Simulated assay, not measured.
Amino acid sequence: MTAGLLAGMASGLAFEATLKQSVQLWSKNRSRQNLANLQGLQLQLPFLGMAGGICVFLASGMEIFGFPKLLSYALALPLTVLTAWLVWTQLGKLLIELERGGSQALDLDSFEG
């Protein structure tokens, strides 16, 4: 359980640093490459590490409550894959929005309800 949590956290920090660096580099250069293309192997690898750590953490958490190991992973794996796919898709949409409208496009405080 602890190993999954630590792996997920370490990969999450690497993912954050890589994403920030890629966006800052794009922002300085405003290169011809669009932001959605920044989701290459450099960003995918820590993301997959984070998802793997989360899967191990979820399965270990279920094992604590008495679920068999096979059943725990059978439940944790699809849940992790679905969540990771949704987050990756949303990240792509946010990067496109950032490219179109700059950081003001992501300013949630500017919306008044």
Rank of each mutant, 00 (worst) to 15 (best):
I54Q: 06
F15H: 03
Q90V: 08
G101M: 08
N34W: 13
F57T: 10
Q24I: 00
L43W: 05
Q33V: 15
L94W: 09
T83L: 09
L43Q: 08
T18C: 01
L71Y: 04
S72N: 02
F111Y: 15
T2L: 13
S60A: 15
G53V: 01
Q33D: 12
E99T: 07
A76C: 06
F15S: 00
A10M: 12
L5E: 02
L82N: 08
K28L: 06
P46K: 07
S31H: 09
A74C: 14
M9I: 13
A36I: 06
L41G: 02
G8W: 03
L94M: 09
R32K: 09
T80G: 06
E112I: 09
G53A: 03
S31Y: 04
L108H: 06
S60E: 15
G101S: 10
K93V: 06
R30W: 11
V81Q: 11
F47L: 12
L108K: 07
A3F: 13
A76W: 02
L35A: 12
L95D: 01
R30L: 14
N34A: 09
Q21G: 01
N29W: 00
L38K: 03
L79S: 15
L25P: 00
M62W: 15
V56E: 05
W88R: 11
G113Y: 07
D109T: 14
L70K: 04
W88P: 08
G92P: 05
Q33F: 11
